[in-house]
Structure formats: C-alpha cells, structure tokens
Design a protein around this nucleic acid. Structure first.
Length: 413
RNA sequence: CAUGGUGUAGCUCGGUUUGAUAGAGCACCUAGCCCGGAACUAGGAGAUCGUAGGUUCAAAUCCUGCCGCCCUGACCA
C-alpha cells in the first residue's frame, strides 16, 4: 500500500468531540470515519485490521468444527413473529417495503437460523450441528458511545451449536471456551473469563472482559485466584471471592465475547425437534457463542497506544512494515521504491510512505500515529551503509540492517 | 429518553459578553526554497457561521423551536 494512493489521510489534530482513545486515534489516523453516532465506515487501514481479527476468529472456529454460513441482514417480520420477538425486541430497527411487507435489520440471528435448522434437522443423525457466521448486526441502541465500543451497526461472529442432549452441549461449551482463550491470546488481548447473568435465556453466561476504563461493564476480579464475576449478578455486599475467599478488586471492563447455553429456548417456540434412536421426538438443545469483531478492534485500540498513537500487535496490524523514504535525493526515492517492490514481491505486507509532499518529521509522526509494529527508514544516511534503519513501534531503539538482510529476514517471517 | 457540554472552511480554533465588511493555523492549488521528528517565503482558492422562525435600520452574536455530535445516567434480548 502506498500512502500517496491510500484512501485515507491522517489528521494533525484528533477529533475534538471524541473522548475515548479508540475513537480519537482510529479517526485521526484514518482507520475509520464516522457518518453518525455509532455508524462508521472502515477505511483501508481499518478494514485490514478488521479482516485480520475476523480471520483469526474464523480460523479457530473452523478448528473446533464450525461451519461458516452467511445469513441475511434483512429479516422478514414473519420470522420474528414466530418467536414472539417482533414486538418485544426493543432495539429492533424496523422498516417497510414500498411494495408491501415489513422487515427488520437483523440484530441477532436466532429467528433466521432456526428456520434453516427446521429444514435441515429431523434425525439424531443430523446432530450435532456447529454453525457460525461473521456479519454486520444492527441494533437501535439508545446511546452509541466510545467509538467502536458501542455502535448501532457492528460486526459480530455468532456461533451456534445444536445437540441431542445437555451433556453433549455442555461438553462442547468447554471446547468453545478453550477456543475463545486461544482467539484472544492470538489477538493479544487479555480477555478475562467472567461469570455473568444469562439474560432471558439461561441463568449464567460467560463473558470475556478486557480491563479498561472506557468499558461499560464492572467486574469483580479476585487477585488471588483470578475468578471474575460481573457486578450485575453480585448481590452480596462483601467483596470476598466466592471461590477462594480472597479479596476482589472492582474494575471497569469491555465485554468482547459472550457464550451461554441457549438450551431449548428457541427450539420450543419454533418447534425444532428431532427423532432419537428410539423414534421419540425431542427438542434440540443449543449453545450460543458471540464475539464482537469490530468491538474487539476498538478494544485493542483502546488498550494499546501511547501519547503518539496506536500500537498494533503483528497479528492484527494493518501491515507488518511501515516503510519511509526520507525526502531528499532521488537516490533515496529510487532505493525505497526498489525495496518496496521487492518486499511486495515476496509477499510482505508493507505500508509505504512514498509521499513527496511530506517532510521527514510528518512521516515519522504519521508512522507513530498509525502504529504499524515495524518501521523501516531509507535515507541518504542509511544508503551510505547500504542499509535501512529499523525501529519497533513499541520500542525506542533503532538498528541499522543491510538491505539484503532485511529482504531475507522478512521473507523468513 | 433525562442531565450537562457543544455546533463558524476538509481539520483544529478565534470572534458571540457589549449586534454593524467572517478571521487564523493546518490541509489544498501556483511558484520558489528546504529535507532525520509535524519546515520556510510569496501568491491563490475555500464559510449562505447546524437548522427554522422571531426581534432589529442591521444578527455568527439577542430570543424561541427543532436537529446533530460528545459526556453521565437509564437500556443492552
């Protein structure tokens, strides 16, 4: 990617009316652009981050047997009436066709999915089913806030598993738990498994919470055994850990994932049944596993930055290398171009600051703001030694490395 | 939905108290100069001051309604 051709520009000042770090930096650095409260475009850099996050999620979901599908974003009224939620789901964006018919913008997909399942499941031989999608959801939130952390339109991975019995479902719940731990580890996010309320569907759920002042949730975290509980289900006034009796601390956090047993809830309302080996009809038991991918992007931006800008981990960064040609002689530009072409040919992900209009200082400042993990600088100084200068975004020290060595180094990684 | 803040050029802001020709910096265009941490010089273009109404000889400025955005709260299937 050449910055001169990139469909985004950095801003010298961060937007004045944003308070959360993710909104300030992501907008200032040109990752996202706001149309209205809680409604964003993802610009090239932002889309790359989002895609990386979603691909990490996808990979782990596939590993535990998940089958990916894509359901519609537009939901016919009839499917929501079938579950009785057309009237009761408060955040439903409803819309009318000009030619008759009413629809909703999908805030969640049980209605659509259970329709699909009714066509698919009739025997115990059809189970289990592990199905997921990554999609844009719409919720008429009373108050969008904090950049990507709470929006009216957001990206989410929703996974559902369907089983012949609770035992099978509970066993799979543990599989998903481990997969989630792996996902967040890959994303570089410390997401704490937290016991929480299950809403209308189950008594308890497990949330994955990232400690952060900008978060909306409050959790009690045990310093001793690390058990975390969402404040919403804590009734007693004692701040002792239920598990080990240790002292707990109260922390604000961002909920980046939520898994819970859905059980027979929707199966009952739409009569989703299968015949067991004895020919007896039974309700299908389900589990539901959500993960907000655009919110994860916001959470990462919120948690990982310094006063100069964002700091992406390699796994989710919009590129691996930020190549800067220090303005000056034609030789420098020529060498940088050659280096860029070479790296691209080798499959490296490079953001190349090829601008002739920016000063060295601007380029450095933009590199810090955008936050790609590795910065490579080509200048007259470095060319005298046939080298480029490397610096990690997360560190201050710079090293000179021979151009040939850089080529092979990036190739190896 | 309620409280508070806020709305002037693509961005960040002056100007509003005390009504009278709308200003700057950045970004952009032209030319020059410079080139390792957000340069410089000269010139240029860009704003019906959120919106609708009212008061006034005259409104960015005063009054009223509405709208957008941000914060806090309520909500979160």
């Amino acid at each position: 990617m050449r910055i001169s051709r990139l469909f985004s520009k950095t801003q010298k000042k961060s937007p004045k009316d944003e308070e959360s770090k993710n909104a300030r930096f992501l907008e200032q650095a040109g990752f996202i652009s706001k149309s209205a409260a809680g409604i964003y475009s993802f610009l090239p850099l932002g889309l790359r981050v989002l895609n990386k996050i979603e691909n990490i999620v996808r990979e782990e979901m596939n590993t535990v047997g998940g089958i990916e599908i894509l359901m519609p974003a537009l939901h016919p009224k009839e499917s929501w009436e079938a579950t009785g939620r057309w009237a009761s789901f408060g955040a439903l964006f409803k819309t009318k066709s000009n030619f008759g018919g009413e629809y909703a913008l999908g805030p969640t997909h049980e209605e659509i999915l259970y329709q699909l399942l009714k066509r698919h499941i009739s025997s115990y031989r059809d189970l289990p089913v592990y199905i997921y999608q990554i999609q844009t959801k719409f919720r008429d939130e009373p108050r969008a806030k904090s950049g990507l952390l709470r929006t009216k339109e957001f990206r989410m991975k929703d996974f559902y598993s369907f089983h012949t019995d609770d035992k099978d479902r509970d066993a799979y719940y543990e599989v998903i738990k481990k997969a989630y731990a792996k996902i967040f580890q890959k994303l570089g996010l410390n997401a704490i498994p937290t016991t929480a309320g299950g809403g209308t569907f189950s008594e308890l759920s497990m949330e994955f919470q990232v400690l952060c002042e900008a978060g909306e949730d409050i959790i009690f975290l045990c310093k001793k055994c690390n058990l975390a509980v969402n404040k919403e289900i804590v009734s007693s006034k004692t701040s002792k850990c239920k598990n080990c009796g240790g002292a707990t601390i109260e922390k604000k956090a961002i909920e980046v994932g939520n898994i819970f047993p859905l059980k027979e809830h929707f199966a009952k309302s739409v009569n989703l049944i299968f015949k067991d080996a004895a020919g007896k009809e039974k309700l299908v038991s389900a589990g539901c596993y959500g993960l907000g991918t655009s919110r994860v992007m916001g959470a990462i931006a919120e948690v990982m930055s310094d006063d100069r800008g964002l700091i992406w981990q390699e796994a989710v960064a919009p590129a691996s290398v930020h190549l800067i040609a220090v303005p000056g002689g034609a030789e420098v530009k020529k060498s940088a171009e050659k280096l860029y072409d070479g790296l691209i040919a080798k499959g490296a992900e490079v953001l190349y600051d090829d601008r002739d209009t920016a000063t060295a200082g601007e380029k450095f400042a933009d590199a810090d703001l955008i936050g790609i993990p590795l910065r490579a600088v080509v200048s007259e100084k470095t060319l005298e030694k046939n080298s480029v200068e490397l610096k990690k975004r997360s560190e201050n020290k710079t090293v000179l490395i021979k151009i040939n060595d850089l080529n092979s180094m990036l190739h190896a990684s």
